[in-house]
């Protein structure tokens, strides 16, 4: 469900690889749950956990400096592949509220919007700059302001980002789109009556 987002500040973590697919975000063996909750413990399971289920201390995502991070910075085409919304649920349940990357998979983009996981697109060069800044600055926090479409951090880091105006309005208001569409029942009824398709 779409929940209201305005501004938030959080610790930033890096996942420095391109084409992070949704299989990597949440592997197949955890898709059998019929609930929306509880996927956070399995997020990036095969990067974070050993086959026996114990935490892998060599995984960058398990680094103490990233614990409690609410913003994930990654590379091109994040969330490509499978349509599993479990990927957005898992990221949110783990504690991420935003992912910042140069581009995202189309279906993942829709799924994240529907769950108020904020996706911020920045040019590849800005991402490189940001990755360097985070590496140099343990405990670095970023502030994302959706209203102003602005992301900022320490050492003068600040930039604006593009954001779809319709989605922005929905997120700033936390509107439930199903309720809104159900109010358009008259239109849907009319379409069904006049559907020109044979």
């Amino acid at each position: 469900m779409i929940k209201k987002i305005t501004t938030f500040t959080s610790l930033a973590a890096i996942l420095d690889r391109a084409n992070v697919d949704t299989d990597l975000i949440i592997p197949q063996k955890f898709l059998k749950s019929i609930s929306r909750k509880g996927f956070g413990r399995y997020v990036f399971n095969n990067l974070r956990l050993r086959p026996d289920g114990s935490l892998d201390p060599t995984s960058s995502l398990n680094a103490p400096r990233y614990q409690g991070a609410g913003i994930l910075v990654s590379r091109e085409n994040f969330g490509c592949g499978s349509s599993r919304e479990h990927a957005s649920w898992a990221l949110l349940d783990y504690g991420f509220r935003a992912v910042v990357a140069p581009s995202f998979g189309d279906i993942f983009k829709n799924n994240s919007f529907k769950n108020s996981l904020l996706l911020v697109e920045l040019p590849g060069v800005t991402i490189l700059e940001l990755i360097q800044l985070i590496n140099e600055t343990p405990g670095l926090e970023l502030t994302i302001n959706l209203l102003d479409q602005r992301i900022s951090g320490p050492k003068g880091f600040a930039t604006t980002f593009d954001f779809d105006p319709y989605r922005k309005k929905m997120l700033l208001n936390g509107w439930d789109d199903i309720s809104l569409t159900l109010k358009k029942e008259v239109l849907i009824n009319a379409y069904e009556r006049s559907h020109r398709y044979p």
Partner: peptide, 20 residues
């Protein structure tokens, strides 16, 4: 086209979908 579970819910309830 493929959709996520929230979109599935929207289609089940309304038989419509928002798409750019």
């Amino acid at each position: 086209f493929g959709i996520g579970t929230s979109e599935v819910e929207h289609v089940l309830a309304t038989q419509t979908i928002y798409q750019a």
